[in-house]
Design a protein around this nucleic acid. Structure first.
Ligand code: MN
Ligand code: MN
Ligand code: ZN
Ligand code: ZN
Lengths: 137, 137
DNA sequence: GTTAATTTGCAACTCCGTTGCATTTATTAT
DNA sequence: ATAATAAATGCAACGGAGTTGCAAATTAAC
């Protein structure tokens, strides 16, 4: 299990420190995105700045990506194994208004948009809000 | 001109105070969205809390809507005259990575998304990033 | 005019994100 | 193995955005 984690870190050229292993492990266990404050809470012994820098490192090396769901703090989720975060790899995100969890919908690519003349597109971000499967009563 | 402004406020059942007239006037003159900090800057004599509450009142009464472009503070833009902010009236937003201005693309409706089973959709927000017409060199 | 309701101004506060700097840990050179 | 160098961590502090309580001022109702 730690094998898999170190492998993942190595594949993104991130040196596998204890802290980084812990954070990645936690993120791999969760199926929804996690924010820095949540991370602080769940790894209470860890320092905020270290966690912050860990996330930044992960993000820079495309192990994770950030999601701004317009609801509280930035959230982070694992990238797919071979992801390079290119425009064509972008997917939409779902934010549940009940449990406040945010999910990557990796199967649903971001929609194609044709802009008015003069506008030059470089990326598209789509956040869908609604009620998730768990919260439907 | 103040005629038009008071009319707009009245049509949304917002009492036309001096402060509110000023804020609405400013927003009508701008063609891009504006944030609370920018508003503070441009109406330097006005108080932050008052401006904040003015925006909240405007938003509640659907005179304006908020835009989370994932880049700094929340921005606000005027709704169309007859807008009720229903899902089918939602449009996409464009955020220029050069000048950092954000525009409503009122002509471009938010894309239709079909979610996996179990997910229940209530709204869609799409932000397109790129370079705006003014910033293309 | 007096009273009640609304709006404004000021101050304070929380939360998230970010940075400087000293200490610890890992890597490299001798 | 030891010393020098580089990288990661911990702690503390800070700044911006958003938000609230409360008193003063303004506006509306009686
Ligand atoms: Mn994602
Ligand atoms: Mn808009
Ligand atoms: Zn949910
Ligand atoms: Zn621009």
């Amino acid at each position: 299990m730690n094998e898999q984690i170190d492998e993942k870190l190595n594949s993104r050229e991130i040196k596998p420190t204890a802290m980084r292993e812990l954070v990645l492990k936690l993120m791999m266990e969760k199926l929804s995105a996690i924010s820095l404050p949540e991370l602080e809470e769940q790894l209470s012994y860890a320092d905020k700045a270290t966690l912050y820098r860990t996330l930044k490192t992960f993000e820079k090396n495309k192990l994770i990506h950030s999601i701004n769901d317009g609801n509280g703090p930035l959230k982070y989720a694992l990238c797919m194994d071979d992801c390079e975060c290119e425009p064509e790899e972008l997917h939409i995100h779902f934010s549940c208004t009940v449990c406040n969890k945010t999910y990557c919908l990796n199967e649903i690519p971001v929609p194609k948009i044709s802009l008015p003349k003069g506008f030059n597109l470089t990326s598209v971000e789509t956040v869908v809000k609604g009620v998730c499967a768990n919260c439907i009563s």
